[in-house]
Design a binder for these strands. Structure first.
Lengths: 340, 340
DNA sequence: TTGTACGCGTTATCAC
DNA sequence: GTGATAACGCGTACAA
């Protein structure tokens, strides 16, 4: 039924191994037979069976992607399509495809990773997010399976290749940006404290305050996945304080959009009454009302370089673990203004 | 190095074929040997090599996903994560993984599909979007390869399983919603006319006008991928007409967000001056300012059912092509109000 | 430069 | 119930 390498060989009047060599573009095959074989391949519409190839060659030409649980709200974040776009671009340059395991919760996702690795479905893995106590990192690291992580791993930091932003510095600069505008009562609205990224940014925020001799106030810190129900209350509570904040540093644009909505609901004007700044600079930031001042973390590059680094590891057995820092840049828009 | 079925067999004191039967949970194997074999598998940490299995069993337990070119702006649309979430959920129920080919333009994506199919990388394919003259549909259809499309295929409509909304009706209802609010000057802002979905919705819009005896005006129709630069001009032009529209029917929430931004820039208030309604009801719609009246098209179900249908086809050789319509529902929010 | 023969790790078809 | 044995389609020493 399906046309195999043997059919091509027969038609071209050569041995199967010769066909295989032509596919691999082995230089030791004469141009004349190459042409003969290629004609036969075209004629028959031949395509190599990738499973057979993977089996024999012990390589799949595929990269595994590990996303947060699709049940997770994070899944909705435009961050992911964009990293994937970066990864996909690099992968394509090298002829690699992408493989995504399905899993509804942490345990299932872990099993999926094990299946990818032990089942030899992929040659390497990219973790699109990582948390404090990441079983997957633990597993991959101890299996010596090639992988890179987008973001900063909590453990083995200098033994695992990863690509990240300097979130500490970025958060510091963003906070300082507000301070420079005259704000002193600055709230921090973060995501799960379980994410390394969150703590990095929180620390950067703290340092900026310290540098400006502004006291750190616990009651200005909110940690909720409060994109929906929860959030309204959080903002409300903040604004009900005796000294409500005049500016918000928000974890990402999606959250910031939520904050904007809640403020507007309460009749609080941005940026006249309060300023709102955030991270990621996804398309949203530009489209929102008002457009958001946001740190461009170059998500595409985050993905592109992660793939690049992983593919390097695959080609080069004894490549050292590498930390790659992608530069960031504050994009100043309408959501932040001087304090009056 | 890697532990194979033979190692397990040896340790358990049985034949490799018996191990294979235990994995498949063949009922003709005695419980005692099953236990013996499973113990051996656990002890050795055995995991079947999927490539070998695929080769022998001629099935990969993987579904191929075809997305629009990642260079495309559509890629940013929250629509995709959400369909994929639906697909992923169903796929996981049946133990299938997802496979994404990489490709920067139409031609490369087409090649990727061919590679998936001929290379036997996947058992079936889901097209996440389709256009008027879709080479991929043509190829898949003529290859008799199992596939379903999300949306309505332009050709072979009743020979290809697909899952779609009733976009014609949805657009009609949405337009009527505005008419019921007293609007008569209603503009339509669509995406590429190359998408079947766009035309369906445009037709629904037209019919609603006709039913209400409101003349159709060519100058109220805008077709641009104008998420960024282009759009500002389009809205400006509309509002500069002698009789500017008092309401906008917009193709999707992301575009609507853009429209909202532009209107606000021009000092036009929504919904006081004009109403804006759109499609998809992604999280954005709720978070935007003001929150958008949007048609919930149940994106998750779109994906879930597409996967379901495809998996059915795989299990059931002679399943008839099927059209599945996912119900929609207008979610009324703050962006639309009576005309005054 | 090209052909032969074997192995990659499974599943499936027979036997027993 | 279980065990040999032959595919599955390709890559690769080794030989020629």
């Amino acid at each position: 039924m399906t046309v195999t390498i043997k059919d091509v060989a027969k038609l071209a009047g050569v041995a199967p191994s010769t066909v295989s060599r032509v596919i691999a573009n082995n230089p030791r095959i004469s141009d004349s037979t190459k042409k003969k074989v290629r004609d036969a391949m075209d004629y028959l519409g031949y395509h190599p069976n990738i499973n057979a190839r993977s089996l024999a060659a012990r390589s799949t030409q595929a990269l595994g992607l590990v996303m947060p649980s699709s049940a997770d709200k994070a899944f909705q974040n435009p961050f992911f399509p964009e990293v994937i776009r970066g990864i996909s671009t690099k992968a394509h340059e090298k002829g690699f495809a992408l493989y995504i395991s399905t899993g509804m919760n942490e345990a299932e996702i872990f099993d999926g990773v094990v299946e990818m690795v032990q089942g030899r479905r992929v040659d390497g893995i990219i973790l699109l997010s990582t948390s404090m106590d990441d079983k997957i990192v633990e597993y991959l690291y101890s299996s010596h399976f090639p992988f890179t992580v987008v973001g900063k791993p909590y453990k083995y930091e200098d033994k695992i290749s990863h690509v990240d932003n300097d979130n500490y510095r970025a958060a510091g600069e963003l906070t300082k940006h507000l301070i420079d505008l005259g704000h002193e009562r600055i709230a921090f609205i973060g995501g799960s404290l379980n994410l390394v990224m969150t703590t990095d940014r929180l620390l950067g925020y703290e340092r900026a305050l310290r540098n400006a001799n502004i006291p750190f106030r616990e009651d200005y810190i909110v940690h909720e996945e409060f994109l929906k129900e929860g959030g309204s209350g959080a903002v409300e509570a903040l604004m009900a304080l005796a000294e409500p904040p005049t500016a918000f540093v928000v974890m990402d644009d999606l959250m910031a959009l939520g904050v904007l909505g809640m403020l507007s609901e309460k009749g609080i004007s941005v940026p006249d009454d309060v300023s709102v700044v955030s991270f990621n600079n996804v398309m949203l930031a530009e489209l929102s009302n008002p457009p958001l001042t946001s740190v461009d973390i170059n998500i595409f590059q985050l993905g592109y370089r992660a793939a690049d680094c992983l593919l390097d590891t695959l080609e080069n057995e004894d490549k050292k673990p590498e930390r790659i820092i992608i530069p960031h840049k504050i994009i100043d828009r309408m959501s932040s203004a001087p304090y009056r």
